[in-house]
């Protein structure tokens, strides 16, 4: 390979990676301005960093590798960045949690799988690789979430779940306005979200139209989880069981007689054929043994 060819390839590679990076970064890596300055309400310390490390190793290391070890998954395109690098550390806490919540490029969202508290712990761990980092704490007071009263009800006429968010402040009960409400139905491996998250209206209400065909248990019961997120009041969630699902009681998949099932559930035709064959053989055997006995007992 001549130097010229190599040079051309290099240029081509540069253009290619520029295009790829540009297309990914321009779309996904930019947090909205109001998210950019978001800060953690958890104070980063050795304990949060240690918890964060465990979470990181379980959820992030398979692609990003260990910080500073240059062992990211090379088969991905682009190669996931080393999170101890200057480029990564130059992002604000707000930008980092935005990426964790929403994903970026190939990276999935961790909003559901981790949740905000664990995400902050991961960030706490990552900031340990940056000597110049000084944490700015959010002004949010976690104690305020205790004041929240989150009530959900089912409206049969419109087939929807109505959520009412209020707070018991010193000066009386007030409606929480503009809080983000999400409604989930609990499933075996995770929560299934009903519609999209909505903001509460002026009276602290949010209305979610509920699917009519969601399977419940035998009685049609569904466990509904309502989550509230508000800048002042933080995260609150309540669960309640409603009988609004389709009653579902499917039999086990191995109930029927089948060629692949166990002996006691063998198809009748096979039991019949097998038994017939065996019985005919036993009859023949009896006949022959009896003949042999006859020969043995025969007198001259």
């Amino acid at each position: 390979m001549t130097t010229n060819q190599k040079y051309n390839q290099f240029i081509a590679f540069l253009i290619f990676s520029f295009v790829i990076n540009a297309s990914l970064s321009s779309r996904n890596w930019k947090a909205p301005d109001d998210q950019k300055d978001k800060n953690s309400y958890i104070k980063f310390d050795a304990s949060t960093a240690a918890q964060g490390e465990a979470i990181y190793n379980a959820n992030c290391a398979s692609c990003h590798g260990n910080p500073g070890k240059n062992n990211a998954l090379k088969s991905l395109n682009p190669i996931p960045p080393d999170l101890s690098s200057t480029a990564s550390q130059s992002l604000t806490d707000g930008e980092l949690i935005y990426i964790l919540n929403n994903g970026a490029g190939l990276m999935p969202s961790f909003k559901n799988s981790l949740g905000e508290e664990k995400e902050w712990m991961v960030i706490s761990y990552l900031r340990g690789f940056n000597k110049n980092y000084i944490q700015e704490l959010s002004k949010f007071d976690p104690a305020k979430s205790k004041l929240v009263k989150l009530v959900s009800s089912f409206d049969k006429a419109s087939n929807s779940i109505i959520v009412n968010a209020t707070a018991d402040e010193k000066n009386g009960k007030i409606a929480i306005v503009g809080a983000e409400i999400s409604v989930f139905v609990k499933r075996y491996f995770g929560n299934f979200q009903i519609e999209k998250a909505l903001k509460t209206d002026a009276s602290g209400l949010a209305k979610f139209s509920f699917p009519t065909d969601l399977p419940g248990n035998k009685n049609g019961d569904l466990e509904v989880l309502v989550k509230l997120y508000d800048e002042n009041y933080g995260e609150v969630q309540v669960t309640k069981t409603y009988s609004i699902g389709v009653p579902t009681d499917k039999p086990g998949l191995n109930e029927d007689r089948a060629i692949w099932n166990t002996l006691v559930k063998a198809p009748l035709w096979i039991i019949g054929l097998y038994a017939t064959g065996l019985i005919s053989f036993l009859l023949l055997l009896a006949f022959l043994l009896n003949n042999l006995r006859g020969i043995f007992n025969s007198k001259v």
């Binding site: 999935p108 969202s109 961790f110 799988s113 075996y188 299934f192 979200q193 579902t248």
Partner: peptide, 13 residues
């Protein structure tokens, strides 16, 4: 039977 599948990576259902 629940008619829901959950993504193993994102835990989205």
């Amino acid at each position: 039977n629940e008619d829901v599948v959950t993504n193993g990576t994102t835990k989205e259902s």
